[in-house]
């Protein structure tokens, strides 16, 4: 005789206020620690490295590329080597590829499958970059997304969306704004925003 036949309602089983993804990540971390795959210090060191990265590094690369065409050529050919040349840390294995926005071509970057991003040179990605609406619309309606970000492109500009689906991380070299002639490299770097290196905004010279 079954005295507990599930005809009656149970209270929903929840994690309290902890989101399911956070609970899952915590459970995975605990398991990996328990099995000796990782150590607590490795997790902390990884987080420290990630939050120590900043778009200021990417901005230095872009500013140097704007100021020095030969450096730009080297950046386009091998972004990792170019970052090392400036004393920047290009990060561990993922290969960084730089692409250049021009009068004729506008690049923007997305990761439809997850949140791949050149973290070593730009720091942690913004939340919208990881959101489903950006990830789905950036590929199917890039011009609409760009308009919402305030980027107006003429019909004569070709839009190229880069979906970083595997081991390559893409960094956009935005167009150098008019009015920035004669600026120092440090002044140029201050014009280069994080979003412009994702390809969803255009640097302005104030």
């Amino acid at each position: 005789m079954n005295d507990h036949d599930h005809e009656h309602p149970h209270a929903a089983i929840t994690n309290g206020d902890e989101p399911a993804a956070a609970a899952r990540a915590r459970a995975l971390e605990e398991l990996l620690l328990e099995k000796g795959v990782i150590r607590r210090e490795d997790v902390r060191a990884g987080i420290d490295w990630l939050v120590s990265r900043s778009p200021a590094d990417g901005a230095r690369l872009v500013a140097r590329a704007w100021a020095d065409p030969e450096f730009k050529a080297r950046l386009l050919a091998d972004a990792r080597a170019a970052a090392l040349e400036l004393g920047l840390d290009p990060g561990p294995s993922p290969v960084v590829v730089a692409v250049e926005n021009t009068d004729a071509v506008h690049h923007m970057v997305v990761c439809t499958l997850c949140s791949c991003y050149p973290r070593a040179l730009l720091g942690p990605p913004p939340n919208w970059y990881k959101s489903l609406p950006y990830r789905s619309r950036a590929v199917s309606d890039p011009r609409g997304v760009l308009t919402e970000f305030g980027v107006e492109l003429g019909d004569d500009v070709e839009v190229r969306v880069l979906d970083s689906t595997a081991d390559i991380r893409y960094l956009v070299i935005p167009r150098r704004p008019a009015g920035s002639e004669g600026m120092s490299e440090a002044e140029l770097a201050s014009l280069v925003t994080r979003d412009s290196m994702i390809g969803v905004s255009a640097p302005q010279s104030a």
Partner: peptide
């Protein structure tokens, strides 16, 4: 809806 030249790139 965009221009006929617009392209989408993926690593495969």
């Amino acid at each position: 809806r965009g221009d006929a030249r617009d392209r989408i790139y993926a690593d495969v």
